[in-house]
Design a protein around this nucleic acid. Structure first.
Lengths: 227, 227
DNA sequence: TGGCGTATGTAACTTGGGTCACGTACATCA
DNA sequence: TGATGTACGTGACCCAAGTTACATACGCCA
């Protein structure tokens, strides 16, 4: 069994899978596959079939919509320990993949064939709970996204995003282009706003990253409804 | 049993419930309640608890988000024979109602207590399928909504909506105000666009409704990506 | 038939943010 | 140490759409 190590990693990343009965866990282990993706590789395009239920072990992907003019809007990010919930959507709805998904780094998945997925959904309450927890979390986050996109201005959304992307030191390791793609906007608009905040002393910019100086200012700018 | 007639109506509106085993159907019938709402009454506000799984028998509600400035955006409509999927979301995610919901007409529901809902999700594959079918359909429609709101212009969205709301004769029985609320816009903007289309001879407007004259023109305007 | 409430028409203005068209600054590798 | 590719800065411009501010117009009830 060359997969023993990977299976171990898998259960480490998804501890709730340990709640399954021995029998069901054995079924998982028997059927699972561990595909890989290069960084930058396309995982899914809109409209593709979804033959597997997909969980992320290493790396990560971003799922997004693309407009006719080429602008992108981030829907959500799949990181180690989380599932690619759009595959859940495909399998449950019996439809096609509803967006595009691209690996942001070299990525390793655990993939469960559709038949096994459905089988386990039927027989394992723990597996069901695991799947539905993730799935309902996604819907919540997409509903917030609707609200944001429909009613919030771009500068507020940008402020929030910087805070969300920042590490403990306040560094945001993204280019303006990437921020624009996350927000469904374009580079120039992001640059414009960032320069303004840099002049105000709220951030410091660098090539390929930026540094938040005044977290509080950004938070009160993007946070409560008001200005 | 004063509810016999209602239970009969209920199963008529939701034929897939007949697929449940006799035992599980008996459980449904035993625990169900049939609350009513006046037209215009608030069913849920954002953040409310959801003690029931709710299915619509008569009437209907609209679920929408509201911006800080008071603009509304329709998320989806609950009609007879469909469930209020946000209650599913609440029950599965264990969270609060994620939007506001208002009865558009006098409305009758079938409501299943949360405990019964969870019990049946565990023991009845048919019930599970019924719930998850609806739920996954909702996610699909919300994802389309994201795409539309983020990337489509208001006039295209309006054209599509007119076509969607029109009856067989091409009559759309809504005020400009209501159309605006569906689309997350304001009345003046809708009126402006409608006048333009009236001048072009695509529609005829009246008080409280309008008539589509040239379906094809509207469809090609809003439909394919181009102009 | 006059008035009141609701629905609509429309002009003028403002603004956010996307588009165009550059110029400049790093950074790496030959 | 130049050349080339990638990231960033910036101004000018434009357009969709929201805001403001009224003017009607219809329809019903007293």
């Amino acid at each position: 069994m060359p997969n023993t190590a990977l299976i171990e990693t898998w259960f480490e990343r998804f501890p709730s899978l340990r709640d399954l009965s021995d029998q069901h866990r054995a079924l998982l282990a028997e059927r699972v596959m561990f595909p890989e993706l290069q960084g930058g590789a396309v995982a899914y395009r809109e409209g593709w079939e979804c033959p597997n239920y997909v969980m992320c072990l290493e790396g990560g992907t971003r799922s997004f919509k693309t407009s006719s003019s080429g602008r992108e809007l981030l829907l959500y990010r799949v990181v180690p320990g989380s599932t690619c919930v759009f595959t859940t959507q495909c399998l449950l709805a019996g439809g096609k993949f509803p967006a595009e998904s691209v690996a942001e780094a070299p990525t390793r998945f655990a993939a469960l064939p559709a038949a096994t997925f459905h089988e386990l959904m039927g027989i394992s309450p723990e597996f069901r709970r695991f799947v539905l927890d993730d799935y309902s979390t996604l819907l919540s986050s997409i509903l917030s996204l609707v609200d944001e996109v429909a009613f919030s201005s771009l500068d507020k959304r940008l402020a929030q995003r910087l805070l969300a992307e920042a590490d403990a030191e306040g560094t945001v390791a993204k280019t303006h282009q990437q921020l624009a793609a996350d927000l469904g906007s374009v580079r120039e608009v992001i640059s414009r706003q960032l320069s303004e905040w840099e002049r105000a002393g709220w951030i410091r910019t660098a090539r390929g990253s930026l540094q938040i100086v005044d977290r509080r200012a950004l938070a009160s700018y993007g946070g409560p409804k008001g200005a």
